[in-house]
Amino acid sequence: MFCGCFQRIITAAIPVVLLGAAALTLTPAAASQVGLNEKVLVFPFETDFSFVALIPQKEMALRAFTLCLRVATELPEERQIILFAYRTANYDELNVWREKDGRISFYMSGDGAFYHLPPLSTFRTSLCLTWESRTGLAAFWVEGKRSTYQVYKPGHSIRPKGTILLGQDPDKHLGGLEASQSFVGELTDLNMWDFVLSRSMIQAWHYGHKVPKGNIFNWGTIEYELNGNVMVVDDD
């Protein structure tokens, strides 16, 4: 029995594309919701059907970005976890993972970049990722502190018109979900910009100070669709 502060939403999804037994389903447009200010997404169980689809404020045709979120999980370190997934028809355009060896990684249309960062845990971690195409400089930021830079895919562009999910990794466009890669835990305060934020701005976001609103995703006005067993909980 959950108290009244928990808003449990289990949507009745309808299939839009069938790609075998593990086809991804999306709810009707009428089921989309807007805004998660002072809310947390809770993924309570390992599944191959629970996810949140995000609808960007602008096309995901990117040559630079900053992606920030706050995350907590009790899954063991040897368990691979998808933290953010954006896929077009043939490519993982931008996927962020915790690997089986505990490293944090991200992939853009091919081999990934891997970082030894403080481990994710049951206590919330503020995590940002920055990348820009001109130089290929990429870094993770944990609790406002930057990792070493890596040079990753200079000259690359992220393509638009894909599917953006939290909680699952689509191995195909609109399908191919696996419970063993699903996210279990809490996600909140996800914001994304189509440019690289400065160190001072990332640190301000970490401490909850005012920063420019994300022009791709802004947690306060984010448009999203809940599918399966996902909970929206007050951030208290």
Score class of each variant (00 low, 15 high):
185 G>F: 06
182 S>D: 06
131 W>V: 05
61 A>F: 13
138 A>K: 04
48 D>I: 03
158 I>S: 07
62 L>E: 08
56 P>I: 10
100 K>D: 12
80 Q>L: 09
133 S>F: 08
109 S>G: 09
205 W>P: 06
5 C>T: 01
206 H>R: 10
7 Q>M: 07
160 P>G: 06
172 K>I: 00
158 I>N: 12
82 I>Y: 02
173 H>K: 14
76 P>N: 09
68 C>V: 07
27 T>N: 14
74 E>P: 00
17 V>P: 00
165 L>T: 11
137 L>F: 09
171 D>A: 07
49 F>A: 10
46 E>T: 15
14 I>G: 11
90 N>V: 00
233 V>M: 10
1 M>Y: 13
5 C>K: 05
87 R>G: 05
73 T>P: 01
138 A>V: 04
150 Q>R: 15
226 L>S: 06
46 E>C: 03
9 I>K: 11
209 H>T: 05
191 N>W: 06
161 K>D: 14
93 E>H: 12
28 P>Q: 12
60 M>I: 02
155 G>K: 08
97 W>K: 08
83 L>S: 09
194 D>C: 04
198 S>K: 12
39 K>S: 06
210 K>Q: 14
129 L>E: 08
91 Y>S: 13
144 G>K: 09
131 W>L: 01
17 V>N: 12
47 T>Y: 00
118 P>Q: 09
55 I>E: 09
178 E>C: 05
157 S>W: 12
147 S>I: 10
161 K>I: 00
48 D>V: 04
13 A>E: 13
49 F>Y: 14
212 P>Y: 09
188 T>K: 09
64 A>V: 06
180 S>A: 11
64 A>G: 11
166 L>S: 02
7 Q>A: 07
174 L>R: 14
116 H>T: 15
171 D>G: 12
194 D>N: 15
4 G>M: 10
112 G>Q: 12
52 V>Q: 02
225 E>Q: 15
42 V>P: 00
143 E>A: 14
20 G>R: 05
225 E>R: 14
80 Q>I: 09
131 W>R: 03
216 I>G: 02
19 L>I: 01
211 V>S: 11
57 Q>L: 12
149 Y>T: 15
11 T>K: 12
168 Q>F: 03
233 V>N: 01
34 V>Y: 04
48 D>M: 05
157 S>N: 11
179 A>P: 07
208 G>T: 02
3 C>Y: 10
174 L>S: 06
97 W>V: 04
113 A>I: 03
161 K>T: 05
98 R>F: 03
19 L>D: 14
43 F>C: 05
117 L>Y: 04
174 L>K: 13
99 E>F: 03
217 F>K: 06
207 Y>P: 00
94 L>W: 09
166 L>D: 06
99 E>G: 02
48 D>T: 11
186 E>N: 07
167 G>Q: 03
110 G>E: 12
193 W>G: 04
80 Q>N: 03
214 G>T: 03
220 G>F: 02
131 W>I: 04
160 P>C: 01
46 E>V: 15
181 Q>P: 00
212 P>T: 04
103 R>F: 02
29 A>F: 03
130 T>E: 04
191 N>H: 13
